[in-house]
């Protein structure tokens, strides 16, 4: 057991009993996000980028683009590729090396939110059908880990893609120094992650709450209030009514957050 884990093991009972009595360590309501800050165009060399601060959690998302062959089953569409790295500066428990199951789950949940919301008009990213299309590569870089990487990463990806500009393509060679048209985006998917502690659900958990949780549910919601991705994780169980209730809260909360941070 890592040193970090032992500390949380000690704090866990205090966090849990406080939550079960209806309060949170930082005084927030159960369905409040922490203060959110989004800085777009943070990395000028990237085609799009966003630094997201969600409480003390910091995630930097960069979008790069290149061209390549399309997949056989989608000859007239660009490709979306999503990757997440939990770099070792972000927490004492993160180690260098290939992504573990947590980083893979994070990347795949971010990917599903973007892909299934049909946020990017991939057909507009076709250069020559069956031959050459744009690849949109979203890299999530976790910089400081104080819980809820899912919501921070999805928010960062959405904000970064909204400010992404496609570089110039001349005779199939990319000129990265000349950014041209904005990426064709239609939606701004944003997620709400709730951790479950006993029978209580808390939006936007910090690290202590995440370490004390039984499990969690992430719901990614589009501007029209439709669900486009969901992921349950951890060791907990939900009744059908719980899922419906959390969906309603997520629609409301992601709506408020979208209005605040996504500039169209």
């Amino acid at each position: 057991m890592e040193h970090d884990d032992i500390i949380w093991e000690v704090k866990k009972e205090a966090i849990r009993s406080l939550v079960l009595s209806g309060k949170r360590m930082d005084g927030r309501d159960f369905y409040d996000y922490r203060p959110v800050e989004v800085k777009t165009n943070y990395v000028k060399r990237a085609e799009g980028s966003a630094l997201v601060k969600l409480g003390k959690t910091q995630v930097l998302v960069g979008v790069k683009m290149d061209v390549g062959e399309p997949y056989q089953d989608t000859p007239n569409q660009g490709n979306l590729i999503t990757n997440a790295e939990m770099v070792p500066i972000a927490a004492p428990i993160f180690t260098p090396g290939p992504p573990d199951e947590n980083a893979i789950e994070l990347a795949r949940v971010v990917d599903r939110g973007i892909r299934e919301s049909q946020m990017i008009d991939l057909e507009k990213l076709c250069v020559r059908e069956g031959e050459l299309v744009w690849n949109v590569i979203v890299d999530v870089h976790v910089l400081d880990y104080d819980g809820n990487l899912f919501d921070a990463a999805i928010l960062g990806a959405t904000a970064a893609l909204h400010t992404t500009r496609i570089p110039k393509l001349e005779d199939d060679v990319i000129i990265y120094s000349e950014k041209k048209d904005p990426l064709p985006v239609r939606w701004a998917p944003i997620s709400s992650t709730f951790v479950r502690i006993g029978d209580k659900d808390l939006l936007d958990p910090d690290l202590g709450e995440e370490k004390s949780m039984d499990g969690r549910l992430t719901l990614t919601i589009r501007d029209d209030g439709n669900l486009c991705a969901a992921q349950k994780g951890g060791v907990c169980a939900y009744k059908k009514e719980d899922v419906e209730k959390l969906f309603d809260i997520a629609v409301k909360k992601t709506g408020e957050l979208r209005k605040k941070v996504i500039k169209k």
């Binding site: 599903r112 892909r115 299934e116 919301s117 049909q118 549910l217 589009r222 209030g225 439709n226 669900l227 486009c228 991705a229 969901a230 992921q231 349950k232 907990c236 169980a237 939900y238 009744k239 059908k240 899922v243 419906e244 969906f247 309603d248 629609v251």
Partner: peptide, 25 residues
Amino acid sequence: MPRTKEIVLMQMDGNFTREELTEAL
């Protein structure tokens, strides 16, 4: 877990309205 009908795994990708989520559940 069928005795209580509690959900222990849930994933989703696609597009559901609120009504569709209820029907899908």
